[in-house]
Design a protein around this nucleic acid. Structure first.
Lengths: 229, 229
DNA sequence: TAATTTAAGTGTTAAAATCACATTTACAAA
DNA sequence: TTTGTAAATGTGATTTTAACACTTAAATTA
């Protein structure tokens, strides 16, 4: 005899995404002005509801894609939030994800269509529901993760300078780093490709561009290598 | 006008607990023989369903308490599993938690009542649904967490010897540690209280017992102290 | 009560990683 | 060709980690 769980409560499950981006001035997240009640007009994370036929990962990708147009970005499940009254309309649980995107490549039109806006992480407004809590957890996780896995590269353009990379890590880790020590450390990891090209925007001398060497990194992983910054 | 989410899918939400314990021979988890279909008779994590009126944390505590009688133990949300067909009966998502308990104090009767059994982590049988995957994720998390937070103490009796503590960390981290280096390291953290008592079971000389000094640890935390093992 | 047995307790040294720090170089613009 | 600007580069001091073996305390037994 199959038990059919008939007596169990059913609830609505949502997904919310903390989308990180990075520009010269620092780390940001993408927020939207909520266009429906409750809390219409307030700032909110990007979210949506789970369909019966998909996983939370699927839902997160679907939702992120709808807003940004991106299809292949770093995304990780963060935590599941379930305070009973977190959504005033109805009992809803929400699985939060965080994503890292290259801010230069996002789709302007979509951003506009959804009245989305980038906010520096030091200036996040009050958000609906428990979204501030979600953000706090996300940035904590990002800080830990970025110092043990090379996920940060997802926030940069494909080609970047050492200084950009350093500024990125300074933004993520929220502390100043020493230039020489940083470069020495990165070089010792030996997971970047130094290109012949230079970025001539920042100085007369120009600074060399680098790429992250995904293949080399994966090969090293097999050899018990750990990224540690 | 309040949107009421009427058109959204509703699903059943479950909680599953990976319960860690520790004895002289190593790290273990508590499993039960499932007494209802589907998969009746197979080994499974301890689980239950989320009620509309509780959070996942509440549900996890309730479920754990029903089985072990414990009320105040280290427990942490791990990950949310949502493969569409993970439960063959019905679409169900499950939030996994892991808990650390002092194996000596658990309630024998309850264990028997639920046909529960301890399994060494190196000898976990095939479990129902995606429970093996849950276990793998739990032990990975435990390993990381135990080396940055002093959670391991939850697995030991209140008073313990240095050797017990070392064996515990060897079991968690799954590697041999050097006795002198381990003691030096622990002592340098300065978060244990050395008692006047000795444990005379293990040797003629007897070995001193220690307690974890929660208050001192918390005070140090304020001072930007990090546990690192 | 002296000798034996057993695990507990204890420090030092070498190697590696981290940290602090200042000058030279390449290039464009004037 | 001189000047201005940011990029590029290396060394020594300090701290942390890792390897390693003998002495001590106490119960047991001869």
């Amino acid at each position: 005899m199959l038990n059919n769980y008939n007596t169990e409560d059913k609830i609505i499950a949502a997904v919310d995404c903390i989308i990180f981006g990075f520009d010269q001035k620092g780390l940001k997240i993408l927020l939207i002005k909520r266009d429906f009640e409750p809390e219409k007009g307030k700032w909110s994370l990007i979210g949506g509801f789970l369909k019966k036929s998909e996983t939370f990962d699927n839902a997160a990708i679907r939702i992120l894609n709808r807003l940004t147009g991106f299809i292949n970005i770093y995304m990780e499940q963060l935590y599941t939030f379930s305070k009973v009254d977190r959504d005033p309309v109805e009992r809803t649980i929400s699985v939060a994800y965080y994503a890292l995107i290259n801010i230069e490549e996002h789709n302007e039109e979509l951003i506009e269509k959804y009245s989305a806006k980038w906010f520096y992480v030091s200036k996040i407004p009050q958000l609906i529901f428990d979204h501030n809590e979600m953000f706090e957890r996300a940035i904590k996780r990002l800080r830990r993760r970025a110092s043990t896995k090379p996920i940060g590269f997802g926030l940069l353009p494909e080609k970047f300078t050492m200084l950009q990379l350093q500024k990125l890590y300074e933004a993520i880790l929220d502390k100043k780093l020493d230039k020489r020590n940083f470069i020495n450390k990165i070089n010792s990891l030996d997971i970047l490709i130094k290109l012949d090209e230079k970025d001539m925007n920042s100085s007369r001398k120009g600074s060399f561009l680098y790429k992250f060497d995904q293949k080399k990194y994966e090969k090293k992983l097999l050899d018990d290598f750990t990224f540690k910054l």
